[in-house]
Amino acid sequence: MADNLYGAFEEAVRDYWRVLDGQGRKQLERGAVDQGRRAQSTGGKQFDSLAAVVAQIFQDEGFPEESIQFGRRAVVPGYYRPTKAWDILVVHGGTLVAAVELKSIASSFGNNLSNRAEEAVGLSTDLLTAYREGVFGTVKPWLGYLFLMADVEEVHRPSGTSSTDLSIDEEFLNPHSRNSRDRIVSYGKRAEIMCRRLVLEQLYDASCFVLSSRDPESEVVQPAADLGFGNFAASIRGHATYVRSMVE
């Protein structure tokens, strides 16, 4: 990956925390004190810099700025529901080129991680089924999933889970566990497994998993090479080349 793109990506990850903290301060100043970190996660702007970096890759590949949609404009037809919003859409020449989802977890890792897995599977399944039924024409849209997790001590410790009489997938099991409280691998590892399997099962064409601290001087960590932003960007470029050959 080009150094300037990687630098922009790292800065965008750090900007996520700057904006998130700023949103929390603004809401607290207005007296809107929400439970937990909700005050910081309801402002909707914390992913703007990351969205811009992803969008720039598509622009560099020849898709005009007006073909890239964000926020309320980034809506596609569904199969199990009439429409669904994504974080980034690329629509060019009447063709849905790509859809990208940006997600994060900064706290309550157990519940939130399970919710993220269900959301990611459902979101992709809805769009891909609509594609199968001819909603988007003959060109299969590229789907991307970028997942940011707070790099805190809790993320690196073994975790627990609900009890079950059935066998849990061994990849999720902590080989050093001594009791049910640390029976499962860390939340960070669980997130990595989730992101990798989203691609393995062809629910997404590429996934990027990032660990990052609020400290602007700290390292932006990409724990797995196959889930790094370099691979994510390369996958976009490959699809962009294919789509241009089909629609131009």
Results as ranks from 00 to 15, higher is better:
A225Y: 08
D226K: 07
S212I: 00
L89D: 02
S186F: 01
R18W: 00
D205F: 07
V33I: 06
L173Q: 13
A224M: 05
R196T: 02
H176P: 12
K45H: 11
E11K: 15
A32L: 14
H176T: 14
F136C: 15
L96E: 12
G44R: 09
V152W: 11
F136E: 12
L146Y: 11
S180I: 11
F147A: 00
G93H: 04
M246N: 05
E61T: 04
A120Y: 08
L143A: 05
I105Q: 03
Q40M: 02
R38G: 01
D165F: 03
V76M: 15
N174E: 15
L198N: 05
G238I: 05
V247C: 05
V247H: 02
I193T: 00
N179H: 14
A99H: 09
F9C: 05
S212R: 06
E29A: 10
E171I: 15
S163G: 02
F209Q: 04
G22M: 03
L28C: 06
G31C: 08
I193H: 08
S177A: 14
N4V: 12
A52L: 07
H239T: 03
S104E: 01
G122D: 04
F58D: 05
Y145M: 07
Q23P: 02
N111Y: 08
D60Y: 14
L146G: 03
V97A: 07
I105E: 02
